[in-house]
Simulated scan of single mutants.
Amino acid sequence: MAIATRHPHIAGLSRNTFLLALASLFADISTEMLYPVLPIFLTQTLKASGSVVGLVEGVAVATQNIVQGFAGSLSDRLQRRKPIALAGYLLAAIGKPAMGVATFWQGVLGGRFLDRLGTGARSAPRDALIASSVDEANRGRAFGLEGVGDNAGAFLGPLLAVLLLIVWHLDTRLIFYLAVIPGLLAFLMVLLVEERPVELMAKAKIDVSFRRFPKAYWKYLQATALFGIGNSSNAFLILQTKDIGASLTTTILIYAGFNLVAALVSYPAGSLSDRLGRRNILLLAFAVFLITYIGFALTRHVALIAMLFVFYGLYQGTFRSVGKALASDHVPEQLRASGVGWYNTTVGLSGLVASLVAGWLWDGVGHAAVFLFGAACAVVGSFALLMLVPYVKHDGTVGR
């Protein structure tokens, strides 16, 4: 695959990949300033129930990922990535202060929907830009670098929230307003990206119908969905941490540590998948998820929860970078935004189901049931990944 050569490449990575990693860094600082505060804001300030938290987060995740499928298809039809990504980054930035003005949980739902609508619109075109900015042999590393930016932002965002809330004693609602600043910086990074024309751009209309995707791609989505219906929102991990007695500051710091681990592991995991095969690395991530969720179901000790969050970061950093790279491997370049987009749609729809089920289990059965259900789905998803998705060797041939 030909790639732009006007800019020097560092270890197989182009200027665009670094700019897009910085965009993810700033965007996630903006998001994660709010994320660990949001479920507590809903339940304590607005007096919402656990089911409402599940609904808000389920709708948010589903919106983000469903939109990615359509945004990816639109990007492939137009054969343009950058303008759609820019619009998404701007919309997501605007959605942050919209949550801060809410006086009822429905208002938070509306602001969260707007935020995730923008996030969904930008993600698939951005991922297509990443995939097209490097050759296939370095694709895992490119997505890993973006994962570093994303998870580093997820680490720095909660720390910034602690600084603003605990050290400077700012009102919680003001955090929502300040989150727009890093969101706009992310927009600026994408503005500096140079989009490479796609080879098929001369065609008047690109066929992006579902029939164009290979069977192996759909099998991968099936395995992803079976795993994903147990992967509920991280908000339930935060609520569990707070429920067993951790203070708000401790909860936010634990969550920040989780994201630091995810940031540190993203690039090595992506690079390792380039050499050892993405399916194998993804299976390891599912196993880590299984162990973590069993641990959350069984322990009531803050120190052990903190250790489990660190372990969970290994899963998060690996799944985010390797999962998207594997989806990208299964589709041709002209369908790449659609392929990654519909993969994320699958993650989102299964996440919606998972969060709704988790909310019902949290309120009606017990907190441990949320994590035991997720662990069971991890077992099913692992077997599906092993049986349905072939092992792709480094030379591109398929094995088992």
Rank of each mutant, 00 (worst) to 15 (best):
A368F: 02
L361W: 04
A11G: 14
A369Y: 12
G120W: 07
L178G: 05
L42H: 05
G366D: 12
L385E: 08
L160P: 05
S30R: 08
I84L: 05
A154V: 07
A384E: 05
Y35G: 00
I206N: 15
V389P: 15
V347P: 04
L272T: 09
S24D: 09
R173A: 11
V302K: 06
D395M: 03
S14E: 10
L298Y: 04
S49I: 09
A306E: 01
I29D: 15
S73P: 00
G157I: 04
G230H: 03
L55E: 11
S233W: 07
R122N: 03
S355E: 03
A378P: 02
F26Q: 06
I181M: 05
F289G: 03
A2D: 12
A202K: 12
A376H: 00
S271M: 15
A85T: 09
L42R: 06
V322C: 01
T241D: 00
R6L: 05
S328I: 02
E32I: 11
M387E: 07
G100H: 00
F176K: 10
G341T: 04
L221E: 13
E199M: 10
L298A: 07
S49Q: 10
S328M: 11
A204P: 08
L90D: 04
T249I: 14
S350W: 04
V162K: 12
L264A: 13
L276P: 00
T5H: 12
T241Q: 03
G88P: 04
R196A: 14
L46M: 15
G110H: 00
H169S: 13
G58A: 05
T31F: 14
V288R: 01
N65Y: 15
S51C: 00
V59R: 10
G381I: 00
V190M: 02
L188K: 12
F41R: 07
L356I: 15
K203E: 15
L385F: 15
Q240I: 00
V340P: 04
I94S: 09
I166D: 11
P125L: 04
R320Y: 08
I294K: 02
A27M: 07
V288M: 09
V310T: 06
L174D: 08
G374V: 00
S273L: 13
L25C: 06
A85V: 12
L276M: 06
S209V: 05
D135G: 12
F311M: 09
P214M: 12
G147W: 13
T346A: 04
F113N: 02
V331S: 08
T397N: 13
T63V: 13
S350T: 06
M189Q: 12
M201I: 10
F187S: 07
P97D: 04
K215N: 08
L25M: 07
A102Y: 00
D171W: 14
A92K: 09
L221R: 06
P83N: 14
A262I: 09
G399V: 13
T241I: 02
L117Q: 02
V108G: 02
L170T: 02
M33D: 12
T346Y: 06
W362L: 05
G111Y: 02
A4M: 11
V180P: 08
F309K: 00
V357H: 04
L117M: 08
